[in-house]
Design a protein around this nucleic acid. Structure first.
Length: 557
RNA sequence: UGACCGAUGGUGUAAUGGUAACACUACAGUUUUUGGUACUGUCAUUCAUGGUUCGAAUCCAUGUCGGUUAACCA
Protein backbone atom coordinates (compact mmCIF):
# COMPACT_ATOMS: atom_id res chain seq x y z
CA UNK A 1 0.00 0.00 0.00
CA UNK A 2 1.26 3.40 -0.92
CA UNK A 3 2.39 5.61 1.86
CA UNK A 4 -0.28 8.17 2.46
CA UNK A 5 1.11 11.60 1.88
CA UNK A 6 1.01 13.50 5.10
CA UNK A 7 -0.74 16.76 4.56
CA UNK A 8 0.72 19.51 6.65
CA UNK A 9 -1.44 20.89 9.41
CA UNK A 10 -2.33 24.50 9.90
CA UNK A 11 -1.44 26.04 13.24
CA UNK A 12 -4.92 25.50 14.68
CA UNK A 13 -4.94 21.84 13.73
CA UNK A 14 -1.56 21.50 15.38
CA UNK A 15 -2.91 23.00 18.58
CA UNK A 16 -5.92 20.70 18.55
CA UNK A 17 -3.76 17.65 17.93
CA UNK A 18 -1.46 18.61 20.79
CA UNK A 19 -4.44 19.11 23.08
CA UNK A 20 -5.92 15.82 22.02
CA UNK A 21 -2.65 14.10 22.81
CA UNK A 22 -2.24 15.71 26.18
CA UNK A 23 -5.87 15.04 27.01
CA UNK A 24 -6.41 18.71 27.77
CA UNK A 25 -10.16 18.71 27.34
CA UNK A 26 -10.70 15.02 27.87
CA UNK A 27 -10.26 14.36 24.17
CA UNK A 28 -13.14 16.65 23.33
CA UNK A 29 -13.28 19.27 20.57
CA UNK A 30 -16.09 21.81 20.65
CA UNK A 31 -15.82 25.01 18.64
CA UNK A 32 -18.30 27.75 18.02
CA UNK A 33 -19.24 30.26 15.35
CA UNK A 34 -20.36 33.43 17.16
CA UNK A 35 -21.86 36.02 14.77
CA UNK A 36 -23.49 39.18 15.98
CA UNK A 37 -26.94 39.33 14.36
CA UNK A 38 -26.52 42.86 13.07
CA UNK A 39 -25.75 42.26 9.40
CA UNK A 40 -25.35 39.70 6.68
CA UNK A 41 -22.56 37.16 6.52
CA UNK A 42 -19.80 37.69 3.99
CA UNK A 43 -16.99 35.66 2.50
CA UNK A 44 -14.77 36.56 5.46
CA UNK A 45 -17.29 34.90 7.74
CA UNK A 46 -17.24 31.92 5.40
CA UNK A 47 -13.56 31.53 6.19
CA UNK A 48 -14.35 31.53 9.89
CA UNK A 49 -17.26 29.13 9.43
CA UNK A 50 -15.18 26.70 7.41
CA UNK A 51 -12.44 26.97 9.99
CA UNK A 52 -14.60 26.42 13.05
CA UNK A 53 -16.85 23.74 11.61
CA UNK A 54 -14.02 22.14 9.67
CA UNK A 55 -11.70 21.96 12.66
CA UNK A 56 -14.32 20.29 14.85
CA UNK A 57 -15.44 17.89 12.14
CA UNK A 58 -11.88 16.83 11.41
CA UNK A 59 -11.35 15.78 15.01
CA UNK A 60 -14.72 14.25 15.68
CA UNK A 61 -16.12 17.25 17.48
CA UNK A 62 -18.99 19.62 17.00
CA UNK A 63 -19.64 23.30 16.56
CA UNK A 64 -22.15 25.55 18.27
CA UNK A 65 -23.85 28.37 16.47
CA UNK A 66 -24.09 31.11 19.03
CA UNK A 67 -25.46 34.56 18.37
CA UNK A 68 -23.52 37.22 20.21
CA UNK A 69 -26.57 39.32 20.95
CA UNK A 70 -25.52 41.61 23.78
CA UNK A 71 -26.37 44.91 22.10
CA UNK A 72 -30.15 45.18 21.68
CA UNK A 73 -29.92 48.44 19.77
CA UNK A 74 -28.23 46.89 16.78
CA UNK A 75 -29.52 43.37 16.59
CA UNK A 76 -32.53 41.95 14.82
CA UNK A 77 -34.24 38.64 14.22
CA UNK A 78 -34.08 39.20 10.47
CA UNK A 79 -30.33 38.83 10.66
CA UNK A 80 -30.58 35.71 12.79
CA UNK A 81 -32.64 34.03 10.09
CA UNK A 82 -30.34 35.01 7.23
CA UNK A 83 -27.27 33.89 9.14
CA UNK A 84 -28.77 30.49 9.88
CA UNK A 85 -29.76 30.10 6.24
CA UNK A 86 -26.28 31.04 5.05
CA UNK A 87 -24.50 28.63 7.39
CA UNK A 88 -26.78 25.80 6.29
CA UNK A 89 -26.39 26.70 2.65
CA UNK A 90 -22.62 26.53 3.05
CA UNK A 91 -23.20 22.94 4.10
CA UNK A 92 -22.66 23.03 7.85
CA UNK A 93 -24.76 21.76 10.70
CA UNK A 94 -24.42 23.12 14.18
CA UNK A 95 -24.83 21.11 17.35
CA UNK A 96 -28.46 21.11 18.54
CA UNK A 97 -30.45 24.30 18.51
CA UNK A 98 -28.81 27.60 17.79
CA UNK A 99 -27.64 29.34 20.94
CA UNK A 100 -27.65 32.93 22.10
CA UNK A 101 -25.45 34.83 24.50
CA UNK A 102 -28.76 36.23 25.74
CA UNK A 103 -29.62 32.71 26.98
CA UNK A 104 -26.95 33.30 29.61
CA UNK A 105 -27.93 36.76 30.83
CA UNK A 106 -28.92 35.43 34.27
CA UNK A 107 -25.72 33.41 34.64
CA UNK A 108 -23.69 36.34 33.47
CA UNK A 109 -25.40 38.53 36.06
CA UNK A 110 -24.51 36.02 38.75
CA UNK A 111 -20.90 35.93 37.53
CA UNK A 112 -20.80 39.68 37.92
CA UNK A 113 -22.17 39.41 41.46
CA UNK A 114 -19.45 36.87 42.23
CA UNK A 115 -16.76 39.27 41.09
CA UNK A 116 -18.27 42.10 43.12
CA UNK A 117 -18.21 39.90 46.20
CA UNK A 118 -14.58 39.11 45.55
CA UNK A 119 -13.86 42.81 45.41
CA UNK A 120 -13.02 42.51 41.70
CA UNK A 121 -15.77 44.65 40.25
CA UNK A 122 -17.34 47.98 41.12
CA UNK A 123 -20.09 50.32 40.06
CA UNK A 124 -18.88 53.55 38.53
CA UNK A 125 -21.13 56.63 38.38
CA UNK A 126 -19.02 58.61 35.95
CA UNK A 127 -19.87 59.57 32.41
CA UNK A 128 -18.24 57.78 29.50
CA UNK A 129 -16.18 60.93 28.85
CA UNK A 130 -14.84 60.97 32.39
CA UNK A 131 -14.02 57.29 32.25
CA UNK A 132 -12.29 57.71 28.91
CA UNK A 133 -10.18 60.59 30.16
CA UNK A 134 -9.05 58.54 33.15
CA UNK A 135 -7.93 55.67 30.91
CA UNK A 136 -4.64 57.43 30.28
CA UNK A 137 -2.97 56.54 27.01
CA UNK A 138 -0.54 53.90 25.85
CA UNK A 139 2.33 55.91 27.27
CA UNK A 140 0.82 57.03 30.52
CA UNK A 141 -0.99 55.08 33.18
CA UNK A 142 -4.60 55.89 33.85
CA UNK A 143 -5.96 57.07 37.17
CA UNK A 144 -8.34 55.33 39.50
CA UNK A 145 -11.99 56.19 39.41
CA UNK A 146 -13.23 57.93 42.56
CA UNK A 147 -15.78 55.11 42.85
CA UNK A 148 -13.18 52.36 42.61
CA UNK A 149 -13.09 51.67 46.34
CA UNK A 150 -16.75 51.43 47.12
CA UNK A 151 -17.60 48.67 49.54
CA UNK A 152 -18.78 45.28 48.38
CA UNK A 153 -22.17 45.95 50.01
CA UNK A 154 -22.62 49.26 48.24
CA UNK A 155 -21.61 47.73 44.88
CA UNK A 156 -23.99 44.82 45.38
CA UNK A 157 -26.81 47.20 46.21
CA UNK A 158 -26.10 49.53 43.31
CA UNK A 159 -25.71 46.70 40.82
CA UNK A 160 -29.01 45.11 41.78
CA UNK A 161 -30.69 48.52 41.49
CA UNK A 162 -29.12 48.91 38.04
CA UNK A 163 -30.80 45.68 37.10
CA UNK A 164 -34.06 46.85 38.68
CA UNK A 165 -34.14 49.82 36.38
CA UNK A 166 -33.63 52.55 38.94
CA UNK A 167 -31.11 54.42 36.82
CA UNK A 168 -31.18 55.89 33.36
CA UNK A 169 -29.05 54.93 30.38
CA UNK A 170 -25.41 55.74 31.00
CA UNK A 171 -25.91 56.73 34.63
CA UNK A 172 -23.82 53.88 35.94
CA UNK A 173 -21.64 51.04 34.70
CA UNK A 174 -20.09 47.99 36.26
CA UNK A 175 -16.34 47.75 35.81
CA UNK A 176 -13.78 45.09 36.55
CA UNK A 177 -11.19 46.17 39.11
CA UNK A 178 -7.90 45.23 37.48
CA UNK A 179 -5.14 47.80 37.00
CA UNK A 180 -5.46 51.34 35.68
CA UNK A 181 -1.74 51.33 34.87
CA UNK A 182 -1.76 48.09 32.90
CA UNK A 183 0.28 48.27 29.67
CA UNK A 184 -2.61 46.57 27.89
CA UNK A 185 -5.33 49.21 27.64
CA UNK A 186 -8.04 46.55 27.79
CA UNK A 187 -6.98 45.69 31.32
CA UNK A 188 -7.51 49.22 32.68
CA UNK A 189 -10.72 48.48 34.57
CA UNK A 190 -12.81 47.50 31.54
CA UNK A 191 -16.56 47.91 31.48
CA UNK A 192 -18.59 44.79 32.15
CA UNK A 193 -22.16 46.10 32.13
CA UNK A 194 -23.94 49.16 30.84
CA UNK A 195 -27.50 50.36 31.22
CA UNK A 196 -29.65 50.32 28.08
CA UNK A 197 -33.39 50.65 28.41
CA UNK A 198 -33.93 49.02 25.06
CA UNK A 199 -36.00 46.00 24.10
CA UNK A 200 -33.96 42.97 23.14
CA UNK A 201 -34.91 40.81 20.15
CA UNK A 202 -35.15 37.76 22.40
CA UNK A 203 -35.44 38.84 26.02
CA UNK A 204 -37.79 41.71 25.35
CA UNK A 205 -37.75 44.14 28.28
CA UNK A 206 -36.61 41.63 30.88
CA UNK A 207 -33.27 43.40 31.09
CA UNK A 208 -32.14 46.98 31.11
CA UNK A 209 -28.50 46.18 31.74
CA UNK A 210 -26.48 44.34 29.13
CA UNK A 211 -23.02 42.78 29.35
CA UNK A 212 -20.21 44.05 27.14
CA UNK A 213 -18.52 41.75 24.64
CA UNK A 214 -15.61 41.05 26.97
CA UNK A 215 -17.89 39.98 29.76
CA UNK A 216 -20.15 37.88 27.55
CA UNK A 217 -18.11 36.13 24.97
CA UNK A 218 -15.57 34.27 27.06
CA UNK A 219 -18.15 33.42 29.71
CA UNK A 220 -20.50 32.05 27.05
CA UNK A 221 -17.63 29.95 25.70
CA UNK A 222 -17.04 28.69 29.20
CA UNK A 223 -20.70 27.93 29.91
CA UNK A 224 -20.85 25.88 26.72
CA UNK A 225 -17.49 24.31 27.56
CA UNK A 226 -16.03 25.37 24.25
CA UNK A 227 -12.56 23.85 23.95
CA UNK A 228 -11.13 26.05 21.19
CA UNK A 229 -12.47 29.53 20.75
CA UNK A 230 -11.19 30.67 17.39
CA UNK A 231 -11.43 34.33 16.44
CA UNK A 232 -9.68 36.94 14.35
CA UNK A 233 -6.45 38.72 15.17
CA UNK A 234 -7.93 41.96 16.47
CA UNK A 235 -9.13 40.09 19.55
CA UNK A 236 -5.60 39.07 20.43
CA UNK A 237 -5.29 42.01 22.82
CA UNK A 238 -8.51 40.92 24.52
CA UNK A 239 -7.11 37.51 25.39
CA UNK A 240 -5.55 38.54 28.73
CA UNK A 241 -8.96 39.81 29.77
CA UNK A 242 -10.67 36.68 28.45
CA UNK A 243 -8.35 34.67 30.66
CA UNK A 244 -8.61 37.00 33.64
CA UNK A 245 -12.39 36.61 33.89
CA UNK A 246 -12.24 32.83 33.51
CA UNK A 247 -9.51 32.56 36.13
CA UNK A 248 -11.17 34.86 38.69
CA UNK A 249 -14.51 33.15 38.20
CA UNK A 250 -12.96 29.69 38.28
CA UNK A 251 -15.14 28.54 35.42
CA UNK A 252 -14.46 26.17 32.52
CA UNK A 253 -11.12 27.05 30.93
CA UNK A 254 -11.94 27.69 27.30
CA UNK A 255 -9.03 29.07 25.30
CA UNK A 256 -8.96 31.68 22.62
CA UNK A 257 -6.85 31.41 19.45
CA UNK A 258 -6.55 34.05 16.78
CA UNK A 259 -6.10 33.86 13.02
CA UNK A 260 -5.72 36.52 10.31
CA UNK A 261 -8.99 37.43 8.72
CA UNK A 262 -9.57 37.31 4.99
CA UNK A 263 -8.93 40.31 2.78
CA UNK A 264 -9.84 40.25 -0.89
CA UNK A 265 -8.51 42.47 -3.66
CA UNK A 266 -10.95 45.00 -5.16
CA UNK A 267 -13.38 44.54 -2.28
CA UNK A 268 -14.29 45.89 1.12
CA UNK A 269 -15.14 43.41 3.80
CA UNK A 270 -16.27 45.25 6.91
CA UNK A 271 -19.96 45.13 7.75
CA UNK A 272 -19.91 48.86 8.29
CA UNK A 273 -18.63 49.59 4.79
CA UNK A 274 -20.92 47.05 3.18
CA UNK A 275 -23.86 48.63 4.99
CA UNK A 276 -22.79 51.98 3.59
CA UNK A 277 -22.87 50.63 0.05
CA UNK A 278 -26.38 49.31 0.66
CA UNK A 279 -27.69 52.43 2.40
CA UNK A 280 -26.29 54.82 -0.15
CA UNK A 281 -27.65 52.82 -3.05
CA UNK A 282 -24.26 52.05 -4.55
CA UNK A 283 -25.53 48.50 -4.80
CA UNK A 284 -29.06 47.14 -4.80
CA UNK A 285 -29.13 45.49 -1.40
CA UNK A 286 -27.15 42.99 0.61
CA UNK A 287 -27.57 40.32 -2.03
CA UNK A 288 -26.54 42.45 -4.97
CA UNK A 289 -24.28 40.04 -6.86
CA UNK A 290 -21.39 42.48 -6.70
CA UNK A 291 -21.28 42.23 -2.91
CA UNK A 292 -18.96 39.81 -1.11
CA UNK A 293 -21.83 38.59 1.05
CA UNK A 294 -22.82 34.95 1.09
CA UNK A 295 -26.31 35.81 -0.12
CA UNK A 296 -24.86 37.80 -3.01
CA UNK A 297 -22.48 35.03 -4.00
CA UNK A 298 -25.36 32.57 -3.91
CA UNK A 299 -27.47 34.82 -6.13
CA UNK A 300 -24.55 35.26 -8.47
CA UNK A 301 -24.27 31.52 -8.97
CA UNK A 302 -21.46 30.48 -6.65
CA UNK A 303 -21.84 27.01 -5.22
CA UNK A 304 -21.28 26.12 -1.56
CA UNK A 305 -18.54 23.71 -2.63
CA UNK A 306 -16.71 26.43 -4.52
CA UNK A 307 -16.69 28.66 -1.45
CA UNK A 308 -15.57 25.83 0.80
CA UNK A 309 -12.77 24.99 -1.61
CA UNK A 310 -11.78 28.61 -1.68
CA UNK A 311 -11.52 28.71 2.08
CA UNK A 312 -9.49 25.53 2.03
CA UNK A 313 -7.19 26.85 -0.67
CA UNK A 314 -6.35 30.19 0.96
CA UNK A 315 -5.19 28.48 4.14
CA UNK A 316 -5.02 29.99 7.57
CA UNK A 317 -2.21 31.70 9.43
CA UNK A 318 -1.54 34.75 11.56
CA UNK A 319 0.02 37.07 9.04
CA UNK A 320 -1.99 39.68 7.19
CA UNK A 321 -3.01 38.61 3.75
CA UNK A 322 -4.66 39.97 0.64
CA UNK A 323 -6.13 37.28 -1.56
CA UNK A 324 -6.62 37.99 -5.25
CA UNK A 325 -10.35 37.75 -6.10
CA UNK A 326 -9.13 35.74 -9.06
CA UNK A 327 -8.66 32.83 -6.69
CA UNK A 328 -12.37 32.93 -5.94
CA UNK A 329 -13.08 33.01 -9.67
CA UNK A 330 -10.82 30.04 -10.15
CA UNK A 331 -12.67 28.07 -7.48
CA UNK A 332 -16.10 28.60 -9.04
CA UNK A 333 -14.88 27.75 -12.49
CA UNK A 334 -13.26 24.62 -11.17
CA UNK A 335 -16.54 23.48 -9.63
CA UNK A 336 -18.89 24.68 -12.36
CA UNK A 337 -16.78 23.17 -15.12
CA UNK A 338 -17.69 19.77 -13.76
CA UNK A 339 -21.39 20.34 -13.25
CA UNK A 340 -22.73 23.13 -15.43
CA UNK A 341 -24.83 22.22 -18.45
CA UNK A 342 -23.45 23.73 -21.64
CA UNK A 343 -25.87 25.83 -23.61
CA UNK A 344 -25.60 28.36 -26.41
CA UNK A 345 -26.38 32.03 -26.04
CA UNK A 346 -25.43 34.90 -28.30
CA UNK A 347 -24.82 38.07 -26.34
CA UNK A 348 -23.89 40.43 -29.16
CA UNK A 349 -25.56 39.07 -32.29
CA UNK A 350 -24.99 39.32 -35.97
CA UNK A 351 -27.29 37.57 -38.39
CA UNK A 352 -26.03 34.77 -40.60
CA UNK A 353 -27.97 33.45 -43.58
CA UNK A 354 -26.96 30.01 -44.74
CA UNK A 355 -27.78 30.53 -48.36
CA UNK A 356 -27.67 26.93 -49.48
CA UNK A 357 -29.79 25.63 -46.60
CA UNK A 358 -33.48 24.97 -47.39
CA UNK A 359 -35.74 27.84 -46.34
CA UNK A 360 -38.28 25.86 -44.37
CA UNK A 361 -36.11 23.14 -42.94
CA UNK A 362 -35.51 22.78 -39.23
CA UNK A 363 -33.17 20.13 -37.88
CA UNK A 364 -33.21 18.98 -34.30
CA UNK A 365 -29.55 18.44 -33.49
CA UNK A 366 -28.31 16.44 -30.53
CA UNK A 367 -25.78 18.37 -28.49
CA UNK A 368 -23.97 16.97 -25.48
CA UNK A 369 -24.75 18.67 -22.19
CA UNK A 370 -21.34 18.50 -20.62
CA UNK A 371 -18.20 16.98 -22.07
CA UNK A 372 -16.77 16.80 -18.52
CA UNK A 373 -19.59 14.53 -17.36
CA UNK A 374 -20.41 11.50 -19.47
CA UNK A 375 -23.62 10.93 -17.54
CA UNK A 376 -24.97 14.36 -18.37
CA UNK A 377 -26.62 13.20 -21.60
CA UNK A 378 -27.60 15.43 -24.45
CA UNK A 379 -30.36 17.76 -25.48
CA UNK A 380 -31.87 18.82 -28.71
CA UNK A 381 -31.12 22.17 -30.33
CA UNK A 382 -32.97 23.46 -33.40
CA UNK A 383 -30.98 24.50 -36.47
CA UNK A 384 -32.29 26.47 -39.41
CA UNK A 385 -31.30 28.70 -42.32
CA UNK A 386 -30.98 31.90 -40.30
CA UNK A 387 -28.91 32.03 -37.16
CA UNK A 388 -27.23 34.50 -34.88
CA UNK A 389 -23.57 34.30 -34.08
CA UNK A 390 -21.41 36.56 -31.95
CA UNK A 391 -20.41 39.75 -33.74
CA UNK A 392 -16.79 39.36 -32.74
CA UNK A 393 -16.64 35.91 -34.27
CA UNK A 394 -16.34 37.66 -37.62
CA UNK A 395 -13.58 39.93 -38.88
CA UNK A 396 -13.75 41.66 -42.20
CA UNK A 397 -9.97 41.68 -42.28
CA UNK A 398 -8.96 38.72 -40.14
CA UNK A 399 -5.81 39.18 -38.16
CA UNK A 400 -3.27 36.41 -37.95
CA UNK A 401 -4.26 33.45 -35.80
CA UNK A 402 -7.96 34.42 -35.99
CA UNK A 403 -9.61 31.02 -36.25
CA UNK A 404 -13.16 32.20 -36.82
CA UNK A 405 -15.15 33.72 -39.63
CA UNK A 406 -13.94 36.13 -42.27
CA UNK A 407 -14.39 36.47 -46.00
CA UNK A 408 -13.75 33.02 -47.45
CA UNK A 409 -13.01 31.48 -44.04
CA UNK A 410 -14.65 28.43 -42.53
CA UNK A 411 -15.71 27.55 -39.00
CA UNK A 412 -17.58 24.76 -37.31
CA UNK A 413 -20.93 25.68 -35.80
CA UNK A 414 -20.92 23.84 -32.50
CA UNK A 415 -22.88 20.61 -32.80
CA UNK A 416 -23.90 21.45 -36.39
CA UNK A 417 -22.18 22.09 -39.70
CA UNK A 418 -19.07 23.69 -41.05
CA UNK A 419 -19.91 26.91 -42.81
CA UNK A 420 -17.96 29.15 -45.13
CA UNK A 421 -18.39 32.89 -45.30
CA UNK A 422 -19.12 33.90 -48.92
CA UNK A 423 -20.25 37.46 -48.49
CA UNK A 424 -21.30 40.13 -46.03
CA UNK A 425 -23.71 43.04 -46.09
CA UNK A 426 -22.96 46.54 -44.82
CA UNK A 427 -25.35 49.30 -43.96
CA UNK A 428 -24.95 52.93 -45.00
CA UNK A 429 -22.61 53.57 -42.09
CA UNK A 430 -20.31 50.75 -43.02
CA UNK A 431 -21.44 48.47 -40.22
CA UNK A 432 -21.65 44.83 -41.09
CA UNK A 433 -25.25 43.75 -40.65
CA UNK A 434 -25.43 40.30 -42.12
CA UNK A 435 -23.24 37.45 -43.26
CA UNK A 436 -23.96 35.13 -46.14
CA UNK A 437 -22.53 31.69 -45.68
CA UNK A 438 -22.83 28.30 -47.26
CA UNK A 439 -22.80 25.09 -45.30
CA UNK A 440 -21.11 21.79 -46.05
CA UNK A 441 -23.91 19.18 -45.91
CA UNK A 442 -21.50 16.28 -45.26
CA UNK A 443 -19.94 18.03 -42.27
CA UNK A 444 -22.82 17.47 -39.91
CA UNK A 445 -21.60 16.97 -36.38
CA UNK A 446 -21.28 13.31 -35.47
CA UNK A 447 -21.46 12.15 -39.08
CA UNK A 448 -18.84 14.30 -40.71
CA UNK A 449 -17.52 12.80 -43.94
CA UNK A 450 -16.33 16.04 -45.42
CA UNK A 451 -12.73 15.52 -44.45
CA UNK A 452 -12.47 19.23 -43.81
CA UNK A 453 -10.57 20.37 -40.74
CA UNK A 454 -11.33 23.76 -39.30
CA UNK A 455 -9.51 25.35 -36.39
CA UNK A 456 -12.43 27.20 -34.90
CA UNK A 457 -15.77 26.21 -33.45
CA UNK A 458 -18.32 28.87 -32.58
CA UNK A 459 -21.68 28.94 -30.86
CA UNK A 460 -24.90 30.04 -32.51
CA UNK A 461 -28.66 30.28 -32.02
CA UNK A 462 -31.39 29.69 -34.59
CA UNK A 463 -33.15 33.01 -35.03
CA UNK A 464 -36.67 31.69 -35.35
CA UNK A 465 -36.24 29.58 -32.22
CA UNK A 466 -34.23 32.04 -30.19
CA UNK A 467 -35.47 33.16 -26.78
CA UNK A 468 -34.80 36.68 -25.61
CA UNK A 469 -33.22 37.28 -22.24
CA UNK A 470 -31.51 39.95 -20.20
CA UNK A 471 -27.97 39.37 -19.03
CA UNK A 472 -26.21 41.07 -16.15
CA UNK A 473 -22.43 41.03 -16.19
CA UNK A 474 -20.56 41.82 -13.01
CA UNK A 475 -17.08 43.08 -12.50
CA UNK A 476 -15.04 43.92 -9.42
CA UNK A 477 -16.63 46.34 -7.00
CA UNK A 478 -13.57 48.55 -6.60
CA UNK A 479 -11.11 49.76 -9.15
CA UNK A 480 -8.57 49.70 -6.36
CA UNK A 481 -6.66 46.58 -5.51
CA UNK A 482 -5.98 47.08 -1.81
CA UNK A 483 -8.83 48.87 -0.07
CA UNK A 484 -7.01 48.85 3.26
CA UNK A 485 -4.82 51.67 2.01
CA UNK A 486 -7.65 54.19 1.64
CA UNK A 487 -9.84 53.61 4.68
CA UNK A 488 -13.17 55.38 4.46
CA UNK A 489 -12.28 56.88 1.09
CA UNK A 490 -13.00 53.57 -0.57
CA UNK A 491 -16.11 54.95 -2.22
CA UNK A 492 -13.96 57.11 -4.46
CA UNK A 493 -12.75 53.89 -6.02
CA UNK A 494 -16.04 52.24 -6.91
CA UNK A 495 -15.78 50.61 -10.31
CA UNK A 496 -18.29 52.43 -12.56
CA UNK A 497 -18.52 49.31 -14.71
CA UNK A 498 -19.15 46.86 -11.89
CA UNK A 499 -22.54 46.10 -13.47
CA UNK A 500 -23.24 45.89 -17.19
CA UNK A 501 -26.78 45.08 -18.22
CA UNK A 502 -27.28 43.61 -21.67
CA UNK A 503 -31.03 44.06 -22.14
CA UNK A 504 -31.49 41.69 -25.04
CA UNK A 505 -29.51 38.59 -25.81
CA UNK A 506 -30.60 35.45 -27.66
CA UNK A 507 -30.50 32.09 -25.95
CA UNK A 508 -31.35 28.61 -27.12
CA UNK A 509 -34.93 27.47 -26.40
CA UNK A 510 -33.98 24.94 -23.73
CA UNK A 511 -33.29 27.88 -21.42
CA UNK A 512 -37.00 28.61 -21.19
CA UNK A 513 -36.99 25.88 -18.53
CA UNK A 514 -34.12 27.44 -16.59
CA UNK A 515 -34.54 27.42 -12.84
CA UNK A 516 -33.07 29.57 -10.11
CA UNK A 517 -30.23 27.64 -8.53
CA UNK A 518 -29.10 25.81 -11.67
CA UNK A 519 -25.76 26.73 -13.17
CA UNK A 520 -25.20 26.92 -16.91
CA UNK A 521 -22.21 27.45 -19.05
CA UNK A 522 -22.99 29.72 -21.98
CA UNK A 523 -20.43 28.16 -24.28
CA UNK A 524 -17.33 30.28 -24.79
CA UNK A 525 -18.91 33.05 -22.70
CA UNK A 526 -18.91 32.02 -19.07
CA UNK A 527 -21.06 30.60 -16.32
CA UNK A 528 -24.53 32.00 -15.82
CA UNK A 529 -27.55 31.40 -13.65
CA UNK A 530 -31.12 32.59 -13.58
CA UNK A 531 -31.68 35.58 -11.33
CA UNK A 532 -34.65 35.60 -8.93
CA UNK A 533 -35.83 38.73 -10.76
CA UNK A 534 -36.62 36.60 -13.79
CA UNK A 535 -40.19 35.78 -14.86
CA UNK A 536 -41.46 33.35 -17.45
CA UNK A 537 -41.83 36.25 -19.90
CA UNK A 538 -38.61 37.97 -19.03
CA UNK A 539 -35.57 35.80 -18.42
CA UNK A 540 -32.69 37.37 -16.51
CA UNK A 541 -29.31 35.70 -16.24
CA UNK A 542 -26.43 36.66 -13.99
CA UNK A 543 -22.93 36.01 -15.16
CA UNK A 544 -21.24 34.18 -12.31
CA UNK A 545 -17.81 34.41 -13.88
CA UNK A 546 -16.38 34.49 -17.36
CA UNK A 547 -14.41 31.69 -18.91
CA UNK A 548 -10.67 32.03 -19.02
CA UNK A 549 -9.99 33.77 -22.29
CA UNK A 550 -6.55 33.42 -23.83
CA UNK A 551 -7.73 34.98 -27.06
CA UNK A 552 -8.03 38.47 -25.54
CA UNK A 553 -4.36 38.22 -24.67
CA UNK A 554 -3.41 36.97 -28.11
CA UNK A 555 -5.46 39.77 -29.65
CA UNK A 556 -3.69 42.50 -27.76
CA UNK A 557 -0.25 41.38 -28.85
C1' U B 1 5.23 56.57 22.13
C1' G B 2 3.11 51.54 25.46
C1' A B 3 1.41 46.46 24.87
C1' C B 4 0.59 42.59 21.55
C1' C B 5 0.92 39.96 16.69
C1' G B 6 3.60 39.21 12.31
C1' A B 7 7.62 39.13 8.15
C1' U B 8 9.25 32.73 2.99
C1' G B 9 8.39 33.97 -5.11
C1' G B 10 3.58 38.46 -8.24
C1' U B 11 -0.30 36.12 -4.44
C1' G B 12 -1.44 32.58 -0.61
C1' U B 13 0.06 28.45 2.29
C1' A B 14 4.03 24.58 3.73
C1' A B 15 8.87 22.93 5.38
C1' U B 16 8.61 22.18 13.35
C1' G B 17 17.61 22.32 13.21
C1' G B 18 19.22 18.34 7.82
C1' U B 19 19.72 21.84 2.45
C1' A B 20 12.90 25.78 0.20
C1' A B 21 7.36 22.27 -1.31
C1' C B 22 2.20 22.82 -3.04
C1' A B 23 -1.62 25.88 -5.23
C1' C B 24 -3.05 30.31 -7.87
C1' U B 25 -1.25 34.05 -11.28
C1' A B 26 2.09 35.07 -15.40
C1' C B 27 4.78 33.16 -19.51
C1' A B 28 5.93 29.08 -23.22
C1' G B 29 4.06 24.60 -25.35
C1' U B 30 0.79 19.82 -26.25
C1' U B 31 -4.32 18.11 -26.78
C1' U B 32 -9.26 19.88 -28.05
C1' U B 33 -16.05 20.23 -32.33
C1' U B 34 -15.77 25.68 -26.14
C1' G B 35 -9.17 30.24 -27.99
C1' G B 36 -12.89 26.42 -22.14
C1' U B 37 -11.12 21.82 -19.75
C1' A B 38 -6.86 18.54 -19.27
C1' C B 39 -1.54 17.96 -19.56
C1' U B 40 3.91 19.59 -19.76
C1' G B 41 7.61 23.16 -18.79
C1' U B 42 9.71 28.09 -16.81
C1' C B 43 9.78 31.86 -12.62
C1' A B 44 12.65 32.38 -4.61
C1' U B 45 18.72 30.84 -1.56
C1' U B 46 13.33 32.77 3.18
C1' C B 47 13.21 41.52 5.85
C1' A B 48 18.47 43.14 7.60
C1' U B 49 22.84 42.50 10.57
C1' G B 50 25.27 39.70 14.06
C1' G B 51 25.44 35.11 17.02
C1' U B 52 24.73 29.58 18.42
C1' U B 53 25.62 25.00 15.38
C1' C B 54 29.01 20.22 11.44
C1' G B 55 24.44 22.31 9.54
C1' A B 56 19.51 27.86 10.42
C1' A B 57 13.59 29.85 6.80
C1' U B 58 13.44 27.43 11.63
C1' C B 59 17.00 28.92 17.78
C1' C B 60 19.08 33.75 20.21
C1' A B 61 20.10 39.22 19.99
C1' U B 62 19.50 43.88 17.80
C1' G B 63 17.35 46.66 14.12
C1' U B 64 13.79 47.65 10.08
C1' C B 65 9.05 47.31 8.12
C1' G B 66 3.76 45.99 8.45
C1' G B 67 -0.64 45.14 11.39
C1' U B 68 -3.77 45.30 15.85
C1' U B 69 -5.14 47.95 20.21
C1' A B 70 -6.88 53.29 24.10
C1' A B 71 -16.35 52.38 21.74
C1' C B 72 -21.27 52.48 27.69
C1' C B 73 -19.62 48.14 19.45
C1' A B 74 -18.60 43.04 18.55
Amino acid sequence: MAEEEKKSLNFLEQIVEEDLQSGKHGGRVLTRFPPEPNGYLHIGHAKSICLNFGLAAKYGGQTNLRFDDTNPEKEETEYVDSIKADVRWLGFEWAGEELYASNYFESLYQFAVTLIKKGLAYVDDQTSEQIASQKGNPNFPGEDSPYRYRTVEENLDLFSRMRAGEFGDGAKVLRAKIDMAHPNMHMRDPLMYRIKHAPHHRTGDTWCIYPMYDFAHGQSDSIEEITHSVCTLEFDVHRPLYEWFIEKLGIYPSHQYEFARLNLTHTVMSKRKLLQLVNEGVVNGWDDPRMPTISALRRRGFTPASIRNFCEKIGVAKRDNLIDVGVLDYCVREDLNKLATRVMAVLDPIKVVITNYPTDEVEELQVENNPEDENSGSRTVPFSREIYIEKDDFMEVPMKKFFRLGPGLMVRLKGAYIIKCDDFVKDEFGNITELHCSYIPESRSGSDTSGINVKGTIHWVSIQHAVKAEVRVYDRLLILEDASQVGDDFKKFINPDSLTVIPEVFVEPSLKEAKVGTNYQFMRKGYFCLDPDATAEHLVFNRTVGLKDTWVKEKSK
